[in-house]
């Protein structure tokens, strides 16, 4: 097997995650799909690292994880706040930004 298959898998997972973001309405699930996309890109980075024979790709994946952790913390805090004020975690309910 050619290790390039990891990249295909990463692309597939990324696309599935993106579709999930578009389809689901529950903010938490949307958020989980975002995490899935991030993980897919991490897999690609790790595969690239192997492809090029250096660790820079892994470093990138590492930073992605750190930033994703920060993002999860803030994002979930936002969701909780939103839920408190609207009693709903639906992203469609927060649709006031229109004319």
């Amino acid at each position: 097997m050619n290790p390039v298959n990891y990249l295909y898998l990463a692309a597939l997972l990324f696309t599935i995650g993106a579709s999930g973001v578009l389809i689901r309405r529950n903010a938490i699930i949307v958020f989980m799909c975002v995490e899935l996309m991030l993980n897919a890109s991490n897999l690609a980075l790790v595969a690239f690292s192997r492809l090029h024979g250096n660790l820079d790709g892994q470093i990138m994946a590492f930073f992605t994880m750190v930033v994703a952790a920060a993002e999860v913390v803030v994002g979930l805090a936002i969701i909780v706040t939103l839920f408190r004020s609207r009693h709903s975690a639906s992203v469609d309910d927060a649709s006031l930004m229109k004319l």
């Binding site: 993106a18 973001v21 578009l22 389809i23 309405r25 992203v91 469609d92 927060a94 649709s95 006031l96 930004m97 229109k98 004319l99």
Partner: peptide, 17 residues
């Protein structure tokens, strides 16, 4: 064109994607 701007974040996400 304004109707495109429906306020639903998922619609915007579709355009982004």
């Amino acid at each position: 064109l304004r109707r495109v701007q429906n306020g639903f974040v998922r619609s915007y996400a579709v355009s982004m994607f």
